[in-house]
Amino acid sequence: MGISLAKGQKVDLTKGNPGLTSVVIGLGWDTNKYDGGSDFDLDSSAFLLTNTGKVGNEKDFVFFNNLQGGNGSVVHTGDNLTGAGDGDDEQIKIDLAKIPAEIDKVAFTITIHDAEARSQNFGQVSNSFVRVINEQSGEELIRYDLGEDFSIETAIVVAELYRHNGEWKFNAIGSGFQGGLAALATNFGLQVN
C-alpha cells in the first residue's frame, strides 16, 4: 500500500525506494453528469522546470500534442478524450535517471479542454487523483486524492516531482487556476498566442 498524501504534503520518493529509476504518474477523474450537452475532455500535462520555476523551451512542455520532453525522460502515453472507466485516465512515464540536470522540477497538471466554450469547470469534476507507480513492479507508491475543493477553476497544478540533495521528492500541490491550459503555460514561462 502506498503513502496517501493530503494537499501540501511532501514525501521522499527515491530515498525511501532505493534503486527506483522509473515511475508512472497516473492521473484520473470522474465527471458529474449534468445537462450541459457537451462531453468533458480533461488533459494531463507535465512542465519540466528549471531552477527559475519556468520551462527552458517549448520541448519541456509535455502534453497531447508533444508527447515527449527532457530528452525522452518524460513520456505522455496519449490523450484520453472521455475519461470513461476506472483507474488512470492518462499516464506520464518518467525515467528519473535520464531527466536532464538543468531540470529541477516536473509539475503535473490537469486542464479541461474548451472549458469556457462548453461552460465547464472543476466544480463538475469529482474523484480526481494523482498516483506514483513503480514502473518495474507496478506497485503504487504515492497517492494524492484532490478532494472537492474546486469550483470555477479550469486548470489544476496537481503535484510535482522535485530534486532535493540528489534525491527526488513528491509534493501534493492541488492549486487551481482559471484560464485553462493557456494560463498554466503562461505561468510556467511559455508564450501563448
Rank of each mutant, 00 (worst) to 15 (best):
K7G: 14
T154F: 05
S151C: 02
G36I: 09
K93H: 11
E153C: 05
V62F: 04
T82S: 01
N32D: 07
N134R: 04
I103W: 04
S44F: 03
F177G: 04
N71R: 01
P100H: 00
V157T: 11
D39T: 14
H113P: 04
G176Q: 12
S38K: 14
G26C: 13
S137G: 03
S22R: 13
H113G: 08
D30F: 14
N66Q: 12
G53F: 09
N187A: 11
I103P: 04
A46M: 10
N51D: 13
K10S: 12
T154S: 14
N32C: 08
E140G: 04
Y162C: 03
G72C: 06
L81Q: 08
S151D: 12
E167W: 06
N51Q: 13
E148A: 09
Q191M: 09
L5T: 00
M1A: 15
T77I: 02
N165D: 09
L67R: 12
T50H: 12
N17K: 12
R118Q: 03
K98C: 02
T154A: 08
S175A: 10
K10D: 13
T52R: 11
D60R: 08
G2C: 04
G138F: 12
L81A: 13
I3P: 02
Q124P: 00
T31N: 14
K10A: 11
D60A: 09
V11I: 15
A84L: 02
G26Q: 08
G83M: 01
N165V: 00
E90H: 05
A185I: 01
A101F: 10
S38Y: 13
Y162W: 11
E139Y: 04
S175F: 15
Q91I: 08
Q68H: 05
Y34T: 06
R131G: 02
I92F: 12
D79Y: 01
G83A: 02
N66Y: 09
A155N: 02
E58N: 15
G179A: 02
I110D: 02
N51R: 12
F61L: 04
R163V: 01
K10Q: 13
D145K: 01
A172C: 07
F63P: 08
T82I: 00
D104F: 10
E167C: 07
P100K: 02
G53I: 06
K7R: 13
G69F: 10
N134S: 07
N193S: 15
S126A: 07
D88P: 11
E148Q: 00
Q178N: 03
E116C: 03
G37W: 04
A107Y: 06
A183F: 01
G87Q: 00
H113R: 01
E153G: 10
A6D: 08
A6H: 10
T31A: 15
K105W: 05
P100Q: 00
S175G: 07
V106E: 06
D114Q: 09
A84M: 04
F40K: 03
T52E: 11
Y144S: 13
V23D: 11
A97V: 01
F47I: 14
L141I: 06
E58S: 13
A6K: 13
I142N: 09
A115F: 11
S45G: 15
G53S: 06
D79V: 00
S4M: 05
T50M: 09
E139N: 08
A183T: 13
I99W: 00
G70T: 02
I25A: 02
K54A: 07
L48R: 15
Q124F: 07
D43R: 05
K10F: 11
N80C: 05
T21P: 09
D95F: 15
G166E: 01
G83W: 05
